[in-house]
Simulated assay, not measured.
Amino acid sequence: MARDSSKPECKQEAGGVFAPVIDRMRCEAKEDCVEACPYDVFEVHKLSDDDKRAMPLIARVKAWVHGNRQAFAVRAEECHACGLCVTACPEHAIKLMRVASA
């Protein structure tokens, strides 16, 4: 199978060792992660009421200022741990965390 030259050299195969975790206290929904990720792991959308209730007050206020929108790793299983999202996020809201093995 030929390698897609538009994809970066990544550290891992999809669906295993690492997954992106977004810090709800930092994310401002600027969509840099969406643009940077070659595997379409991220989407930015409106926070649900449950999402907002789970956040501390200061994070809810910050989210409100930014239109109650944040990034979500909706396809985290597609993450290849390339780190482009981590580098692209201006708020430093994304970390790649090791996934607990079953």
Rank of each mutant, 00 (worst) to 15 (best):
K46A: 13
A93M: 04
R98C: 03
R3W: 06
E43L: 09
E9L: 07
K11E: 11
I58H: 12
V17A: 12
A63R: 00
C37E: 04
H45Q: 14
I22D: 02
M1R: 09
E77L: 07
A81C: 03
L47S: 00
G83C: 00
V86G: 02
M55W: 03
I58P: 09
E78Q: 12
V17L: 02
C89S: 07
V61T: 14
K30A: 13
E43C: 03
M97C: 11
K52W: 08
A73V: 12
H92K: 13
K11P: 00
F42D: 06
C27G: 08
R98P: 05
D51R: 06
L47T: 13
A59T: 07
Y39N: 05
C10G: 02
H66W: 00
R53H: 10
A73S: 12
P56C: 02
R24F: 11
G83V: 07
A19Q: 05
L47K: 05
L47I: 11
A29M: 04
E91Y: 10
A73T: 12
W64D: 15
D49V: 13
K46W: 11
A2V: 15
A36H: 03
A54E: 14
F42N: 01
F18C: 07
K11C: 01
V17Y: 11
C89T: 10
S6D: 01
S6C: 05
A100V: 12
R75A: 15
P90F: 07
E91V: 01
C37M: 03
H80W: 08
C27W: 03
E9N: 08
D32M: 04
K7Y: 09
E31R: 09
M97Q: 15
K46M: 09
V61A: 13
P90T: 10
V34P: 04
G83L: 00
A63T: 07
R98W: 02
C85D: 05
K30T: 14
P20G: 00
L96G: 07
D49T: 13
A54K: 13
C89F: 05
V21A: 10
V41P: 03
P38T: 06
A63Y: 08
F18H: 09
E31H: 02
M25A: 14
P8S: 02
D49S: 14
P56I: 05
K7F: 00
E91K: 13
D51W: 06
L57T: 15
F72Y: 15
K52I: 12
M25Y: 13
H92P: 02
V86E: 06
